[in-house]
């Protein structure tokens, strides 16, 4: 098995991102005629949507998701570590977007980042992929200090981080297969790897039959699953999501959340910015709340909060 297919516990091939040994080890079998990913088991996300959609109607709140909410022990080297990070945009020199923020996120965690618009959520996420440089302080991702990182190294950092956005960012003139394959083509993977890995990850997100469709033939939820597939196809140890359910209806959102949850259970660290109160409340994972650029709450098994503000 090529080492880049792995996202196993312990030190991975690059030696950077470490997932805890308690996490289930996904194994990818590429030798057989049809690759099988054990973590997908028999559950297909596409099938799980319908019953939940009907069940969500009476109370309006989701039932807590099965198998989620486990507190990940804070051991080992943090995947993400912010040390007194301040970000000041030139347009607003007196109002820092992040103000002296320090926090650690450990391998295998599922972290919600919540806060009002303008509280600094997106700034935080953009720091992680080095779309933005901290004005002051150190951002350490995968053992690398992004504040000091040379520009030419940034693409290699991003290969270890999957990103999902509210607006999907799919290419309209490429098929679903093409969109996911594009992510591997861009980093120079050989065709043989692309041909095995892309159908596999599309099966993981439950879109194996829609491989040859184009994005505008798919529903919003399906498009978002494609973008999750694209983020995961290279098996990154860290997944960063910026309001992935922002313009999806609650039932579809739940499908996406289940998908992300399952990805998390394979050992992938997930950081997700969201406004979806019910989702956060039902998932009961670590919640980091930002307000005016400061961390006002960092809570294991937390809720969305901010009830007073509404």
């Amino acid at each position: 098995m090529p080492s880049h297919l792995r996202n196993t516990g312990g030190t991975d091939a690059s030696g950077d991102l470490v997932t805890p040994s308690t996490a289930p080890v996904p194994s990818v079998v590429t030798s057989g005629p049809e690759p099988v990913r054990t973590i997908t088991a028999s559950t297909d996300v596409a099938q799980t949507n319908a019953p939940v959609a009907s069940g969500a109607t009476p109370g309006g709140l989701y039932a807590p998701l099965e198998g989620s909410g486990a507190v990940v022990p804070h051991t080992g080297t943090p995947t993400i570590s912010l040390r007194n990070v301040t970000v000041i945009y030139p347009a607003q020199p007196n109002k820092p977007a992040l103000d002296n923020v320090s926090l650690d996120i450990y391998p295998g965690e599922f972290v919600f980042v919540v806060g009002h618009s303008g509280s600094g959520k997106s700034t935080f996420l953009r720091l992680l992929t080095r779309e933005l440089k901290a004005t002051k302080g150190d951002v350490i991702v995968a053992g690398q200090n992004l504040t000091k990182m040379r520009n030419w190294k940034v693409p290699y950092l991003r290969r270890q981080i999957g990103t999902v956005f509210q607006d999907f960012k799919l290419l309209p003139d490429k098929t679903i297969y093409g969109n996911v394959a594009f992510a591997l083509e861009c980093i120079g993977k050989p065709r043989s790897v692309i041909e095995t890995q892309v159908p596999e990850v599309l099966r993981l997100v439950g879109l194996a039959e829609k491989m040859d469709s184009f994005p505008d033939q798919l529903s919003g939820g399906e498009q978002q699953r494609v973008s999750v597939a694209r983020a995961m196809v290279n098996r990154p140890p860290l997944l960063v999501c910026d309001e992935p359910t922002g313009n999806l209806d609650p039932a579809i959102s739940l499908g996406i959340m289940k998908l992300l949850d399952r990805i998390n259970q394979t050992g992938t660290t997930v950081v997700m910015a969201t406004h979806d109160r019910e989702m956060v409340d039902s998932m009961r994972r670590r919640v980091i709340a930002l307000e005016a650029g400061e961390v006002v709450r960092d809570q294991e098994r937390g809720g969305y909060g901010f009830y007073d503000a509404l």
Binding site: T129, R158, R230
Partner: peptide
């Protein structure tokens, strides 16, 4: 768009 996505997934310059 394509360039933005390429940068997102870590294509080198």
């Amino acid at each position: 768009r394509e360039i933005a996505i390429m940068r997102l997934v870590g294509a080198s310059n």
